[in-house]
Design a protein around this nucleic acid. Structure first.
Lengths: 136, 136
DNA sequence: CTGTGTGCAAACTCTTTGCATAAGT
DNA sequence: ACTTATGCAAAGAGTTTGCACACAG
């Protein structure tokens, strides 16, 4: 994914391709699937020489999420992770390191799900497999 | 579950059965399975005439969770839910109302889960089925 | 030019902590 | 008495918002 495609991505989503959005998009979408917090992205952006404020990081991540370019994953209390893989998939969460990873399996499925209550429909199913360090 | 059993529950967990812990325990454990935030419990406690501070609510919920009397569920960004049902089960989350519910099904299961990465073992599997209001 | 986006700081929400007082054993 | 809990207020993390300035179309 190059800068061109990102510009198109943004336009398609109705966002103006500003300097910051292009650069953040590049960091997010040009390095495979990523799971990142606002804070991590902020550090990474500054390190890459991009003059961007934390507020803009948040605004941008939220806009990307609304536009369906990102998916937000809640793992615990405070911080949110943003996942660049928006397709249907599930996660491992390494509790000791606070690291989120995709579960690499197409076979994983849920069975026996009852019909949702009246007047509601299933929006999304989130699965988080919490991993602990194994005692050796 | 009566006040007696709660006192025992607390002692067994190595906690002194103080006024606040007993009363909060009563609110939590004497009304079936509950999914409640610290804030909600605070309001409920004050309404019930219990003089308790929000800090104590948090301390108590965290202690109960550590002792295995409660289970913490992360659904989105900021607030944490505490679930009085500590057995293995999954949740519906009504996004519009911010309401968490147990999924009433023993048949629900996950299949095709790959072996976790080396050096780790599965601690817990959280499943949240997010429900939207159905368009009629 | 016109309107949207950005930076900064301040506000806000949820949660934790420090310290003096109160309560449990 | 001795020790642990509690209340309060203040601090802390993560996130959002308001407003003036800057940039894209």
């Amino acid at each position: 994914m190059d800068r061109q495609s990102i510009e198109k991505k943004l336009r398609d989503a109705g966002m103006r391709p500003t300097r910051q959005r292009l650069s953040l998009g590049e960091l997010l979408f040009c390095h495979g699937d990523r799971h990142i917090t606002a804070d991590q992205l902020y550090v990474e952006a500054r390190r890459a020489g991009l003059a961007v404020s934390l507020a803009t990081i948040y605004n941008t991540l939220n806009q990307f999420t609304e536009a369906g370019l990102l998916r937000e994953v809640a793992v615990e209390g405070q911080k949110s992770y943003f996942d660049t893989n928006t397709s249907n998939h599930y996660h491992y969460y390494l509790q000791d390191e606070g690291k989120l990873m995709d579960i690499d399996s197409k076979e994983l499925s849920v069975s026996g799900l009852p019909k949702p209550p009246d007047g509601t429909k299933i929006g999304r199913i989130d699965i988080i497999v919490r991993l602990d360090k194994e005692a050796l």
